[in-house]
């Protein structure tokens, strides 16, 4: 299958501190890759660079043929709204917008806000009955599902999740994982940063980071290098 993410010689330094050292990795289209590692291993830095929220000090990041290094702020904004869907540990929903409006917000920056497609996206994550609820009136799992619906609304090429279950209880974690499985089954490419071994092992492949360097692990499901 086609490589949708190709990272070569990626380094990121914050002053004297090297967060990433010559990272090379690739993700195939439709693949679910888990990035794991202890705190400070560089996994969130890696994800932020792939998200276009941070820039590399050195190296190349190709997403579906688009080189992120050297893009302007405006080009990176366009990349974020058109090519990737972001899922955050803290959900980051706008507190004064209801579930549907939070989804429509991503549409607004992309093209045009459309209630009907926002409603379908929320029904897809099982929140068809919570459309007009404010984030404060939703459980953690529900908020994360709104966040997933928002990430999916612009039909991204890749879904990038940073500790998506980090703030959820077991039941809600299961619901989110089921959703990921379903999306993966539909051919969505997923890159999930996690501490949680059970979440990591749900992917096709685990990439272990340590001190900013990559150790590739083979996931039990694929049994391939």
């Amino acid at each position: 299958m086609k490589e949708i993410i190709k990272i070569s010689g990626l380094s990121k330094a914050y002053g004297q501190v090297n967060a990433l050292h010559h990272v090379d990795l690739s993700v195939r289209e439709g693949e679910w890759v888990s990035i794991m590692g202890p705190s400070g291993s560089g996994k969130s830095t890696l994800l932020n660079i792939v998200c276009g929220l941070d820039s590399p000090t050195d190296g190349s990041v190709l997403i579906d043929g688009l080189e992120l290094a050297g893009l302007s702020a405006s080009e990176l904004a366009r990349y974020r709204r058109e090519m990737v869907g972001l899922i955050f540990q803290q959900f980051h929903l706008v507190p004064y917008l209801n579930a549907m409006e939070n989804v429509m917000l991503a549409q607004y920056f992309h093209s045009m806000a459309d209630e009907e497609s926002a409603r379908i996206a929320l029904e897809r994550v099982g929140l068809g009955h919570r459309l007009d609820h404010l984030p404060a009136h939703l459980s953690g799992g529900e908020q994360q599902r709104v966040c997933i619906a928002r990430a999916l609304i612009n039909e991204p090429r890749v879904l990038l999740a940073d500790e998506p279950t980090g703030n959820l209880d077991e039941k809600n974690e299961e619901a989110v994982m089921e959703l990921f499985q379903e999306l993966h089954g539909q051919g969505m490419t997923l890159v999930v940063v996690t501490h949680d071994v059970s979440v990591g092992e749900a992917g096709d492949r685990i990439i272990n980071l340590e001190h900013g360097r990559v150790l590739v692990k083979t996931a039990p499901k694929l049994q391939t290098a």
């Binding site: 998200c51 929220l53 702020a73 405006s74 904004a77 366009r78 974020r80 709204r81 058109e82 972001l86 980051h92 706008v94 917000l105 991503a106 920056f109 992309h110 928002r150 612009n154």
Partner: peptide, 16 residues
């Protein structure tokens, strides 16, 4: 600030 950051993360440009 957080809201502006979120909007930018979702693809908002400065003009938005």
């Amino acid at each position: 600030r957080g809201e502006i950051g979120l909007m930018k993360a979702l693809g908002a440009e400065n003009i938005h």
